[in-house]
Design a protein around this nucleic acid. Structure first.
Lengths: 234, 234
DNA sequence: CTCAAAAAAGAGCGAGCGTTCGTTTTAATA
DNA sequence: TATTAAAACGAACGCTCGCTCTTTTTTGAG
């Protein structure tokens, strides 16, 4: 029998941040290799440097005016790049949105995978909820963009975006159903799963409401989890 | 002592719909008189007829492509009006979004007013939650548009939109706090108020998830209210 | 029915959009 | 250091945008 390390207190945002897999450089490197066909630059070093500039600028401009109203000339002014540089990097404007979708998909699938590695469904549920909440704050501009700009994507990518949300809810629902001994007595698992997702989205969709002193996000996670557990156990 | 009519069962969506104050004609008539300075047509009859066409077309196009990507020529094709007709009606494109904001503000303020007329805070809370949920489904395109297109509004109107949400949460919070005898024991009133609003928004923001057979919305309302009451009472 | 006012029509305008491409600069290799 | 492939540049292009304005049609009170 092995002795495992059991943390004395619940996982906090600060803990999570330390172990977070997707710092800026790694994320852009992954996006570069996953989206070779959308990106005109062949050497990672240059691609990552330009992608950084382009996405930082996009995330600064879009929340104020929306993706469609952001012109490439706005983007040039904000990044300091030239028209040629931008087009060599992203090939066309739509690809900015497509790459954001890919990034969010990437980290979400990783979250589900990690949660599935847990054998105890209660532990898995907590990992998924906190993982999703904390990740979507660390990558807030990406999640925010995908939610508000799904309509700016080509149609097949719009479907991907909706299916990503559906699969997140399905995963939560599966875990909740496992925890409910007598499902007919409580709330439908789907209702609770939807509520969880919605509470997570509240945080990353309305940054104007949460000028967050970091501690409040732990309290928020705690309130969510308490509410979930009280609602599951009849 | 007067004998009051006490309904045998909870208010359903069907009941609500029957007494709903804002059918299309009345809503447009109100918008016409509230926004005289944005509307170029002077005779109500013509104004209402054109506004109907314009907003119906807008609500058909915008969910697919977004407001900024919807051109006035798209709008002409969808409404059958001419450029002159459209511009005589709405004066400029921004005014479409501004009038939507005014409509949502109008019905929301009415909801709060009606809830305040109730002396029992439990009754008032139920009236507000169900009223908001049912209203935002009956006027789904309006609420959806305001949420997704707030960034397309002129800045001062963007503030109005955010403040409208803040005031809705504040009203819910006030009622919840009244119902909590020992506030320190349960969830913060603000947390619950936010959760309620978020659950309502879930329904009108994601119509692609809810191809609703009408009954499901009553079940949804019931689940929400049970969750709220269980969370308030310790 | 008359006729002035209101509404509708739609060609046209200039600004600004996303994108292209011929050229220049930079970086890595031999 | 010479060579060459990759990256960066930015003026120019064709097109579509929101909007205007003159003309025509419709409306309704007298």
């Amino acid at each position: 029998m092995t002795i495992e390390f059991v943390p004395a207190r619940a996982l906090t945002f600060a803990d999570f941040k330390k172990c977070f897999d997707y710092d800026e450089d790694r994320l852009f490197a992954l996006l570069f290799e996953r989206n070779q066909e959308l990106i005109g630059i062949r050497r990672e070093k240059f691609a990552v440097r330009n992608l950084k500039k382009i996405f930082r600028a996009t995330f600064k401009l879009v929340p104020k005016i929306g993706f469609q109203a952001m012109s490439l000339r706005d983007l040039l002014a904000e990044t300091g790049l030239s028209m040629g540089g931008v087009y060599l990097t992203i090939t066309n404007k739509d690809n900015i949105a497509i790459i954001v979708k890919d990034a969010v998909t990437l980290v979400c699938e990783d979250l589900v995978e990690k949660a599935r590695a847990e054998s105890d469904p209660a532990v898995a549920l907590e990992a998924l909820v906190k993982g999703y909440l904390y990740t979507s704050l660390l990558l807030q501009p990406w999640f925010y963009f995908l939610y508000f700009e799904t309509r700016s994507l080509p149609l097949n990518h719009q479907d991907d975006s909706k299916n990503l949300e559906r699969s997140q809810v399905a995963e939560l629902e599966r875990l909740i159903a496992q925890l409910q001994k007598k499902p007919e007595r409580g709330y439908p698992a789907k209702f609770l799963a939807t509520m969880i997702l919605t509470m997570v989205q509240e945080r990353y969709l309305k940054p104007w409401k949460y000028k967050q002193p970091a501690s409040t996000i732990d309290a928020y996670a705690d309130n969510c989890l308490r509410l979930i557990h009280r609602s599951i156990h009849h």
